[in-house]
Amino acid sequence: MSQSKSPRSYLIIARSSPYGSQQARAALDIALAAAAFEQAVSIVFMDAGVLQLLKNQQADAAGIKNISKVITALELYEVNSIMVHQEAVDKYDLDPSQFVLAVDVVTSEDIKTLIAGADQVMVL
């Protein structure tokens, strides 16, 4: 890898359902890659993306990889900040205790501030 101005701050906005497309996995892979290169990474799950966080996903039954295993790797890769949008939690009638890892619940206003403060924002 060539020299770059680093580390920079990344905000990944994961808003895709876990198995409806490749986008959910793509967002996580970008987050993990950025963290592996020692960038400051935050991820916020919003819209259908909150469903990625649920415990007891039975993806193996459909012959596909369980995305929640990748999500638990976020902590190992030192992704600094893992957040979920309050509106999405409410919309899907979820409770953070149902999630595979501890997340900070954030408001739309918080997300605005996060976007404004990040060097790079990627929405998937």
Binding site: M1, D29, I30, A33, A34, D119
Partner: peptide, 13 residues
């Protein structure tokens, strides 16, 4: 190439 090239590009952009 790999996903690292995306992170590298983001660092320079």
């Amino acid at each position: 190439s790999g996903l690292g090239q995306l992170i590298d590009a983001a660092g320079q952009s």
